[in-house]
C-alpha cells in the first residue's frame, strides 16, 4: 500500500517540494564565480558587493522572515567590523578565527539588545532599533582613543588565509574568501528558514497574537532570530574589515541602516535571493552614479523608492515572479 505510515500525503510532499533545491538557485553562484574571471579589475567592488549581500541577507532573516522592522541593523554590522579591527590590532591576526570571534561577540550584542527591545512593538520598536544604533555610533565616534573616531580604524594586517593565500592588492583572495563565507552563511540561513522554527517565524510575522494563543514563545523566537541575524551582520562587518584593512565610522551610521533596508526591499523581502538581486544592482548603479554626482544618485534612488512602494510589491524578485507567471499564463 502506498498509504503507509512513512509515506507523506501528496499535499505534505508538495509543501516539502517547495523547499527543495531548484536549478535556478545555482545561478547567482555561477555568476559570482564567472565574475571572478571576467572582471579581474573589479574584484574589490565585487568583494564589497558579496559582503553587502551577506549583510542584507542577515536583515532578511530579521525583517523578511520574522517581520522585525529595523532602522538600526548597521549596529551589528558595525560592531562586527570594529571587533575584527580591534582584535587584529590586539594581535589576533588570523582571519577565520577572527571572523568567528566577531560573529560570536556580535551575536551576544544582538541577544542582549534583542532581549531588551523586543518586548516592545510597532513604532516603539522602530525607534529603539534606531536608538541602539545611534548610541553605538556615538560611542564609536567619541571613544576615539580606541576606535579612531571619525578617522576610522586603520593599520591592521592579517595573516594569509589558511596560512596559504595572502590578501593581495587585486583583491583575489578577498573576493574568494567573501564568496566562500557568503555561501556558508547562505546555506545556514536557508536551512533555518526552511526548518519548523523558520516556519513558525512566518506565523509570527503574519500574526504574533495568534501564535501566542497557539502557545508559541513568541518573544523567545524573535530574540533567537534577532541574535542569528545580528551575528550574521557582524560576520559581514568583520569580513569588510579583513578585506579592506580599514573600519570607517559610517559602518554604524543611519545611512548604512537605511541602505541595507533599501537593498533588501529593492530585491524583495522574505525570499533570501532578494538580498542578492537588490544589493548587486544597488551597489553597481551606486558605484557608477555616485562617483560623478553623489546627489543625483540620491535623487533617483529616492524616486525609485517612492515608485517601488507605489507600484511594485515584493521587490525586483516579485516583479520577476509576476512576469514569469504572466508569461506562463499567456501561452495558448
Amino acid at each position: 500500500m502506498p498509504e503507509g505510515a512513512t509515506i507523506p500525503h501528496p499535499a505534505v510532499a508538495a509543501l516539502a517540494r517547495r523547499q527543495t533545491w531548484r536549478a535556478i538557485e545555482a545561478l547567482p553562484w555561477v555568476l559570482a564565480v564567472a565574475a571572478y574571471f571576467v572582471f579581474p579589475a573589479y574584484l574589490n567592488l565585487g568583494s564589497q558587493i558579496l559582503i553587502m549581500i551577506l549583510f542584507t541577507l542577515s536583515l532578511d532573516l530579521v525583517l523578511g522572515y520574522a517581520g522585525i522592522i529595523s532602522l538600526g541593523h548597521a549596529a551589528f554590522f558595525g560592531v562586527g567590523a570594529y571587533t575584527a579591527g580591534l582584535l587584529a590590532q590586539a594581535g589576533w591576526v588570523e582571519p577565520i578565527s577572527g571572523l568567528i570571534a566577531a560573529g560570536v561577540i556580535t551575536g551576544f550584542v544582538g541577544l542582549a539588545s534583542g532581549f531588551v527591545i523586543l518586548r516592545t512593538h510597532g513604532l516603539t520598536l522602530l525607534m529603539l532599533t534606531l536608538a541602539v544604533a545611534a548610541m553605538l555610533h556615538e560611542i564609536a565616534n567619541k571613544a576615539a582613543a580606541i576606535t579612531g573616531g571619525t578617522d576610522g580604524l586603520h593599520g591592521m594586517t592579517f595573516t594569509p588565509l589558511l596560512g596559504l593565500f595572502r590578501f593581495d592588492l587585486f583583491g583575489r583572495t578577498a573576493y574568494l574568501y567573501s564568496l566562500a563565507v557568503l555561501l556558508v552563511m547562505f546555506l545556514i540561513a536557508r536551512r533555518i528558514v526552511s526548518s519548523p522554527f523558520g516556519r513558525s517565524l512566518a506565523g509570527i510575522r503574519e500574526n504574533p497574537i495568534r501564535m501566542q494563543a497557539l502557545g508559541a514563545p513568541v518573544s523567545l523566537r524573535l530574540i533567537a532570530i534577532y541574535t542569528v541575524g545580528a551575528s550574521m551582520a557582524g560576520i559581514a562587518g568583520a569580513l569588510l574589515t579583513q578585506t579592506s584593512q580599514f573600519v570607517a565610522l559610517r559602518v554604524l551610521s543611519f545611512e548604512m541602516s537605511g541602505a541595507v533596508l533599501i537593498m533588501l526591499i529593492l530585491g524583495g523581502v522574505g525570499r533570501l535571493y532578494g538580498a542578492f538581486v537588490g544589493t548587486a544592482i544597488y551597489m553597481i548603479v551606486q558605484d557608477s552614479a555616485a562617483k560623478t554626482t553623489p546627489y543625483y544618485w540620491y535623487f533617483w534612488l529616492g524616486w525609485l523608492l517612492v515608485l517601488s512602494v507605489l507600484f511594485t510589491r515584493g521587490g525586483l524578485i516579485g516583479v520577476f515572479e509576476r512576469a514569469r507567471k504572466a508569461v506562463a499564463a499567456w501561452k495558448p
Binding site: 533596508l261 535623487f299 529616492g302 523608492l305 517612492v306 512602494v309
Partner: peptide, 10 residues
C-alpha cells in the same frame, strides 16, 4: 518607512 526615506532623499 521606505516611501518617506525616498521623499527624504529626493
Amino acid at each position: 518607512v521606505l516611501m518617506t526615506i525616498g521623499v527624504l532623499f529626493i
